[in-house]
């Protein structure tokens, strides 16, 4: 594939699953994301055998619920991240996960290819900005976003004061925002 197609490749796989029950698209999605989700679950404290089962579940859920994927609002990685996160909350905390009420929407057509590429490309820029972060900041972001540890737990593990952890994460986020030129919505 050419570079320009890359950001949308997984979004398109989900759309093919939704519209055509495309098994080849599912197999490709599975091979790319199942190991990442398994790794995410292990990093956040799940035992490897259970993490393997849960990664299976998360991808099976993506197959069943592909119709809920909205490529104008999320990349495939983001959508799968939210499914995997909810599964992790389920296992680790045995509690419900209240979700915001969906916004009402009309019977909208699929976003056109340009709109879809816009969001997927922005996601790719974000990925590049993440790679460009200094290693220490990137590690902290990964710890925090994988829900591996709360900020206080990261502080306890690294021996750094909580304030330092928070300001480093903030600094990393500011760098990412700057890289994307994304304005804070507030």
């Amino acid at each position: 594939t050419t570079k320009a197609e890359d950001p949308a490749i997984w979004a398109n796989a989900l759309i093919r699953i939704r519209d055509h029950r495309d098994e080849a698209a599912f197999a490709a999605l599975f091979c790319h994301f199942a190991p990442r989700i398994k790794g995410f679950l292990i990093r956040s404290g799940t035992d490897p055998a259970l993490a393997e089962e849960c990664a299976q579940d998360v991808l099976a859920t993506a197959w069943r619920k592909a119709a809920l994927f909205d490529p104008s609002r999320a990349s495939a990685a983001t959508w799968l991240f939210t499914i995997a996160r909810n599964r992790r909350i389920d296992i680790a905390r045995r509690q419900r996960r209240p979700e915001p009420q969906d916004l009402p929407w009309g019977p909208e057509p699929d976003p056109d290819q340009a709109e879809l590429l816009g969001l997927q490309q922005e996601t790719e820029y974000l990925g590049a900005a993440l790679k460009a972060l200094p290693k220490k900041q990137r590690d902290l972001i990964e710890k925090a976003y994988f829900g591996e540890m709360t900020h206080s737990e990261i502080a306890a593990e690294t021996g750094l004061p909580l304030g330092t952890i928070k300001s480093r994460i903030r600094l990393a986020l500011d760098r990412l925002r700057h890289a994307l030129d994304v304005r804070d919505p507030r």
Partner: peptide, 22 residues
């Protein structure tokens, strides 16, 4: 924040799935 979570997931090394996983 969820978008960033997705980017971290995409960027992560992952853990190999079992041979019969697919």
């Amino acid at each position: 924040h969820e978008t960033l979570g997705g980017a971290v997931l995409e960027d992560s090394a992952g853990a190999a799935m079992g041979d019969d996983a697919l």
